[in-house]
Design a protein around this nucleic acid. Structure first.
Lengths: 244, 244
DNA sequence: CGGGAGTTTGAGCTATCTCAACGGGGGTGG
DNA sequence: CCACCCCCGTTGAGATAGCTCAAACTCCCG
């Protein structure tokens, strides 16, 4: 594992996946991992390919998407550094249920199915941590399912921007800039809507100074207001009527 | 673990959760489990309660639901015998993100958080199996998310009935009877729709002899036709126009 | 034989999708 | 370095699936 910088290593040690493991154990695990580098827009793997490798993202960002039979895309999840992806690889003989596409240049390490099983036997904590991570992820996915089932597009979009902010953003002066290349189409595919509706809502928000948008770029100005929209305490239409 | 009948025990041994474990190991694990009995409509646990126990359903059926802040319900999942529920309990200190309500009289066994962790250390296979089960479940949830995001109500309903058929049904003559008490409202909460729309679609299907409905009861007549609707090769409206 | 829970159905409404047309900016190739 | 082109975004107008609300209907059960 030459390509691991000391920085990455210390980061990896703090990953939930490796919590409770000793440094030398993690080192031993990482010895069995292979590095993978991929340029922006390229794929780590594609839907329906045999799932043989589990990945840990070190740097960059991944978009996990599913294609419907008739060609529509749905974005299932954004993967940020130190997160696991390609977990289906632990089920021997399966296929990836989704594609993993880099939204930026990416570095990752990967482990083969057999290797994972072997390591999980040696280090039960690895399996326990992985289990816990999946429970957490299911929990998150359930929340989004509930949103999709019960909330209107505007609220879903607000939730999504806030979520992206938490996961990956930095501040520039008063602005909170999302560190994700986000076309209207991408947002639409995340919330189960269309790029037109997303565009309209974002335009409206921008005219109310809740956000600032650019080409594939979004910055939040007043996350508090967005949160109120997300929580249904207010609608952006209401802001017009009574601009306090 | 007195209440375990020999039948249940042999079933438990075949559970994915216990695969690869030796009989005596499973016995040792079950020694630490406590039996729980609950009548139809009662709750195993409620959303937001501290999550301290993980359950394995032995008999009956559970409906896992989430309540939105404004009181709408969403059915996240039906749990059938030999399935795990309350998995959040493995994350120490968390709360149940959903409620688990019995749709029939239920028997289950439960394990405390500490106990699970202890056992997973002793039997790494337990953790690995649990991990795999969660991966599988995430996979299923992703499929439903994609459906909800891209498909119309009619197709989602068709998918749901077919899924319920696979999970839990028996045949009576030509009829495939779903073994789940299903009010229109329940179905609506599963697919993110309203009881009115569900009722209309079911009525239409019934008039086309695809299904037979009763009070909280549904039977399938021609699952093939339903599958065609689910796969978008056809719409029930098309059946009217050209009844071949 | 009520009573109530579950279901059906109609009618109107609206959030959101669809389709179409236009606008703009940035990067790339000449 | 400039111009063109392409991708991304905006906006309007019309269509519609599905929601809401209201009212009546039908079992099942005590």
């Amino acid at each position: 594992m030459y390509p691991l910088t000391p920085d990455m290593l210390t980061s990896l040690l703090k990953t939930p996946l490796f919590s409770q493991l000793r440094h030398e154990d993690v080192a031993q695990i990482l010895e069995r991992a292979r590095p993978v580098k991929i340029a922006a827009d390229a794929y780590f793997f594609r839907q329906a390919a045999p799932a043989r490798r589990l990945y840990i993202l070190l740097d960059g960002q991944i978009k996990v998407t599913q294609l419907t039979p008739d060609g529509q895309q749905v974005v299932m999840r954004m993967i940020n550094p130190l997160e696991l992806f390609g977990c289906v690889a632990v089920l021997s003989g399966g296929e990836y249920p989704a594609s993993a596409q880099a939204t930026k240049d990416c570095q990752a390490i990967c482990l083969d199915t057999d290797e994972i099983h072997r390591l999980m036997h040696i280090f039960p904590h690895l399996a326990i941590n992985a289990f816990q991570m999946m429970v957490q992820r299911t929990h998150e996915l359930q929340d989004r399912y509930r949103e999709l089932a019960t909330e209107c597009v505007e609220r879903r979009l607000a939730h999504t921007l806030l979520r992206l902010m938490k996961q990956n953003s930095h501040t520039e002066g008063d602005l909170i800039v999302l560190d994700t290349p986000l076309a209207r189409q991408d947002l639409a595919e995340m919330i189960g809507s269309t790029l037109y509706t997303v565009s309209r809502i974002l335009s409206q928000w921008e005219s109310q100074n809740l956000i600032v948008t650019g080409r594939e770029k979004i910055s939040l100005v007043t996350p508090k207001q967005l949160k109120r929209i997300a929580e249904a305490q207010i609608f952006s239409a209401d802001l017009k009527k009574a601009p306090i």
